[in-house]
């Protein structure tokens, strides 16, 4: 069964403009899909809608989010939270703000297993140690007793990855998980996520603005502009020949160190105008039913 199907998902600011415009996408079990676009395009918003953590200022106005066949939006809130808690997880962008600075690492990984999933403390501790070893953290026991500030950025991101995989989720939302890291650490972390993902067979929605990263870890991608999916493609096809002029322009803006003349071309005004006209036409169509 498909891990995740999103159909015509619309989200808007309460009594305000739309933020997601009938977004549809699907994710096979064990597949990684990139969500790319400029800031404000709505890529993080999709992840938040799936995890049920949208800010109170926005509302879902239509559509379906099917998690392994169950429409999350039709479940009563308590059931929905339980369902998401048991089968989904988040790898956040900033590992420092995602960890509580005044608690040791161990409980921050195990509390969810104990409190929400009803594991025994002993089993949860053993699982945490096992996962910390799997994300190549030397001396897991010492790290579990450490506070976040005692660890480097790369170590903290490894801990959050271990924590995300702890309850064997079917779906992980990775929200720009390497943006705060430098390139050599980014490479280690991306390889780690890819390795964990392959071993555990987890589906991942991978939010990023870096097409270079997409080409390394994703099998498919959705390109967003202003909350609208302008292109849904297989990674191999996309990098050979992007279909939508906006996504082609985004690719042309991405710098390449191998070719100093390529990349760093701003998205041309004509392309922006054309894609804005598409969005406006879409809004008119919605307004007229």
């Amino acid at each position: 069964m498909t891990a995740l199907v999103i159909r015509n998902l619309s989200v808007r600011l309460r009594k305000g403009p739309p933020l997601l415009r009938r977004v549809s996408l699907d994710l096979a079990p064990g597949e990684v899909r990139g969500l790319v676009g400029e800031s404000g395009a709505g890529k993080s918003m999709i992840g938040k809608a799936v995890l049920g953590i949208l800010p109170p200022s926005v509302e879902i106005t239509g559509g379906e989010i099917l998690l392994e066949g169950t429409d999350l939006l039709r479940l009563p809130p308590a059931d929905r939270r339980r369902r998401i808690g048991a089968s989904c997880a988040l790898i956040p962008q900033d590992p420092l703000t995602a960890l509580n600075p005044s608690h040791r690492i161990g409980p921050q990984i195990t509390d969810r297993l104990v409190d929400i999933l009803g594991w025994t403390r002993r089993n949860a501790d053993a699982r945490a140690r096992e996962l910390l070893a799997e994300v190549q953290i030397p001396d897991p026991d010492r790290v579990m007793r450490s506070y976040p500030h005692e660890l480097s950025g790369g170590m903290r991101q490894r801990i959050l990855i271990a924590s995300a995989f702890a309850a064997e989720p079917r779906l992980i939302v990775a929200d720009e998980p390497t943006t705060a890291l430098d390139v050599t650490v980014q490479k280690q972390i991306l390889k780690l996520i890819a390795g964990m993902q392959a071993r555990h067979g987890t589906a991942i929605l991978f939010v990023t603005h870096d097409l270079g990263v997409v080409s390394k870890v994703c099998q498919r991608l959705s390109v967003l502009y202003s909350g609208m999916v302008v292109e849904d493609a297989r990674v191999a096809d996309f990098f050979r020949a992007p279909r939508h002029p906006y996504s082609a322009a985004l690719l042309a803006a991405t710098p390449k160190y191998t070719d100093p003349t390529a990349g760093l071309n701003p998205v041309p005004d004509a392309v922006i105008e054309a894609v804005r006209a598409e969005v406006a036409a879409f809004d008119r169509e919605v307004a007229h039913g």
Binding site: K187, G212, L251, T258
Partner: peptide
């Protein structure tokens, strides 16, 4: 520097950059 990096660290930095190309050996 880009054509013939001399320091090991420079080579490591260069090889860690994800190019927007799925065929790049990484």
């Amino acid at each position: 520097l880009f054509c013939e990096p001399r320091a090991d660290y420079t080579r490591e930095l260069l090889s860690a950059i994800p190019l927007p190309d799925p065929n790049q050996p990484w």
